[in-house]
Nucleic acid binder design. Structure first.
Lengths: 198, 198
DNA sequence: GGTTAATCCGACCGTTTGGTCTGTACAAAG
DNA sequence: CTTTGTACAGACCAAACGGTCGGATTAACC
């Protein structure tokens, strides 16, 4: 694997684990047994390094994990349950959950680094827009009730997903996952089409 | 106001705005035109300073804003709507929302400072326990359906509340608040007692 | 063999960090 | 007037930070 790619992979891991500001360039280099020269040969600055990680790694992962599995199928509500279920399962095993990564970075850079914030918001926006249109398509296909406000539903779904990751820090994350999923199903049930009253 | 109290107030503001690690002791002292001597006369360390802020300011505010307004009333579902509505309104005006503060710190210290994490989890736990017991009381009083899993509902409610604060960073926070509240009502509606089928 | 460009090393720099320590202004007590 | 303890000032420190720079290594090409 090329050095540049190794740096990005290790960088994302450490930034996710410790935060951007709390992770020094030396930390990353120490993990890979590399030197300052190697880093600043490939990247202009720490900020530039981070932005490349976002665009090369995070954006693609968000798409493949949170967008692609949902869009393109018939019943969006079922796909959402499966997708969240899978994402939270990786969270239970403490593997890197890219939805959580995005959430962490969004909170860390709020009101600080505008440039980085722009890139993060772009990624988030893509996810949101896709979720909304998928719900609207589900409405068209009869899987979502026609009275549902799809934009509001997307906001609520993403909110709950982002938030539950914060709750899964403490003890018994799998219990919290189970509780969350049960109520997610309750909420999604209310989006289903009303039975036609004969 | 005593110097010690002024430091804590200013400290919380800056920690909330910039994060714990990204805020230096000098930043706080500069804001109050004080010196290092004053700080380390009152506090043993930056960590000790932060813990005192958590216990003296954050814990009390969480109670008065998120716990007290919900408990003790008849219908918990109505109180939850009002309470979240009010909390998110302060968020729209960019004032300090203490639920958001707790969320930010929980994500910032995850897996880093165990000692601080313990204190934050304690505060969170109090909120969660209160919300669960309030829902259970609501079930007893006939405002919540008897089939509802109160622990799961509390988890879901807190998740969505924590998460929506992340979404309100970008543009049009008030629009996101409106969408969130509409779906919160949809969800809470599904917790109401089923009409007895005659 | 000599030249060139790519890749990486590691000493070094200025600044900032959390924290220490000596000193001092001052009010209350003797 | 002297003593004593409180409440702060600010110079100072070692460590860590992001970033620079001259040089070493290596392989490819003429």
């Amino acid at each position: 694997m090329a050095t540049m790619h190794r740096m990005q992979t290790a960088g994302l891991e450490l930034f996710y684990a410790n935060g951007y500001y709390a992770t020094s360039v030396d930390d990353i280099l120490k993990k890979l047994s590399l030197s300052k020269g190697a880093f600043y040969y490939h990247f202009a600055s720490k900020e530039d390094f981070f932005i490349q990680i976002i665009q090369n790694l995070l954006a693609r992962k968000i798409y493949s994990v949170l967008i692609e599995p949902i869009e393109g199928h018939d019943n969006p509500l079922e796909q959402i349950v499966d997708c969240f279920e899978e994402a939270l399962e990786t969270a239970v095993h403490n593997d890197m959950d890219f939805g959580c990564v995005l959430n962490n970075f969004l909170t860390e850079f709020r009101g600080k680094d505008q440039k980085i914030m722009k890139h993060l918001c772009d990624i988030f926006s893509i996810w949101e827009v896709n979720l909304v249109s998928t719900l609207q398509k589900g409405k068209f296909n009869g899987y979502v009730d026609r009275h549902v406000d799809c934009e509001a539903a997307a906001t609520y779904l993403i909110s709950s997903y982002f938030g539950v990751r914060t709750l899964m820090v403490g003890t018994t994350p799998s219990a919290r996952k189970y509780r969350f999923m049960s109520q997610l199903r309750v909420y999604l049930k209310s989006l289903e089409p009303r039975k036609v009253v004969a």
